[in-house]
Computed example of a mutant assay.
Amino acid sequence: MQVKYYLFFLLLTASVYGQKPAPPAIYSDPVSALQTYHENLAQLRQEHKNQQELPDLKFFMFGMGDRLKLIYRNGRLLNAMTGNIEEQWNVKQEVILPSEYLVHLALADGQTVQIREDESGVWLLQTAKRPRLIPGTRSRLSLPRFANKTFGPVLRVLHQEVLINVINGRPVPNFLVYFKPWYRDAAQMAMVLRATDNLHLIRDWILAIRDPFDRNNQRETDNLGQVLFLVSLVSNKTHPVVPVVLDSARRFQTEKHIVGKTDNVAHPVYQTKWLKYGLKSLDLSDTYLIPKQADSYSSVFWLDYKTEHVDEKRVDDNFSNNPFFGWAEDHFYDQANVSEKRGMVGNIDYPLSWQQRDIDAHYPGLTVLDRELVKQKIAFPHAWHAAEMFLLLNEK
């Protein structure tokens, strides 16, 4: 009997041990890897010359997906939601390596510490000490290296900037300044999650959708198609929100298209394109026609129906504040000429995405990062911007 119990205990111990995530090794040459990232960024800036000056705060965020959100800055590792100091070091030199999700610290006492996030969690690695998985960060993620892509290191960072803005199973534009998901941002984020095998992070949120409008400021008509598309990623036409969307679409119908407000303006081409795309995603009947008229948001929708577009003079639609529009337009027009590309790139290593002066953002949430950001009203990283960049560059 004792032998059987002992064997059972050994098997149980081996099983539990086998489930423990394997810690990463200490990254051997972060300086060389940072140089590679800088070269990739320089190549991106050569192809996208429309650039924006941003405050260089020298920080990095950890906690992709539903992991505990953490911020490293100035020798401190902070809980991003509470501001509590989780770890603190006397740092002699730091290397922030965004493409490896790594902060390398040379301490004043000669020791080396690395904070590193991988597919298992966020780790504290230190010479002569056992690796430590930070509590609240253990979960499985898919973090591709994009090794066969032209902008592989940049894609790694953009992927991180999307994943960092998934919180409590919900995709938000920026987890510090927005409390609720926006369906438009969520749809673009979901495309990235689908491409990288991370849709499980928001599956339950999509399944729980019952309202065809996100109601962040009003009933935005483009939400209808976005909800149908989101549903198609994890469910089918039997999802409870589908008949509600179809009924709402009929209420916004004018002739053969729909029209309502998006960003407080009527955008019938953009809204109808989204609806048709959502219907197609769920293999639903579609009798709607895209109106043959100019619509400044028509070129923001690049997923389909590119030929059903009435071109007009392109103007700067406040791209410095809303840079996702420029990247979406570049995707729509598939610009080969560098001078025609309008997608903006920042002047800093990290983050690569942002949005500024959005009336719906709660900028005091940025206080944990830097009070100056509250004054300047800059939210970064921004998931929609990161997603638009990712989805275009992932085709290169």
Rank of each mutant, 00 (worst) to 15 (best):
D204G: 03
W205R: 01
V234H: 01
F62D: 02
V227N: 04
W205N: 02
S339F: 12
R371N: 14
R194P: 02
E86G: 03
N50L: 12
R67Y: 13
H362Q: 11
V338L: 11
R73S: 15
T137V: 07
S281V: 00
L41D: 01
G110T: 05
P181T: 10
S120I: 04
Q43P: 02
D283F: 07
R210E: 05
Q335R: 15
N40M: 07
T36F: 10
V244W: 07
S320I: 13
P24T: 07
H267G: 03
L78Q: 09
F301I: 09
D370T: 10
Q35S: 13
V300G: 11
E340D: 14
N50W: 08
L77I: 11
H385R: 00
S120G: 07
F252V: 04
L224A: 04
F146T: 01
P243G: 10
G346S: 12
H104G: 01
N347D: 15
R194Y: 09
T82K: 14
H104V: 03
D66L: 07
H385C: 11
Q293H: 09
R210Q: 06
F213S: 01
R130G: 09
S298I: 05
M1K: 15
D109C: 06
K58G: 05
P21W: 07
D360S: 15
Y178V: 04
V310Y: 13
Y305S: 08
N84E: 13
F213E: 01
M389H: 01
P181S: 12
S235Q: 04
V245Y: 06
Y277P: 00
H362G: 09
A383V: 01
Q93A: 12
G83R: 12
L176S: 10
E119S: 08
V91K: 04
W274T: 06
L199Y: 01
R342P: 01
G169W: 03
R116E: 09
S120T: 11
V259I: 12
Y363L: 09
W384D: 09
R184M: 14
P131K: 05
L228K: 01
V234M: 06
I26Q: 03
D247Y: 10
Y6D: 15
Q88P: 11
W327N: 03
K92Y: 09
V192N: 02
E312H: 15
E161K: 06
L124V: 09
L246S: 11
T254I: 13
I167M: 08
I71V: 15
H309S: 10
S281Q: 06
R357A: 14
V244F: 08
R156W: 05
F146Q: 01
F8I: 12
H159C: 05
G121E: 06
M189T: 05
L224P: 00
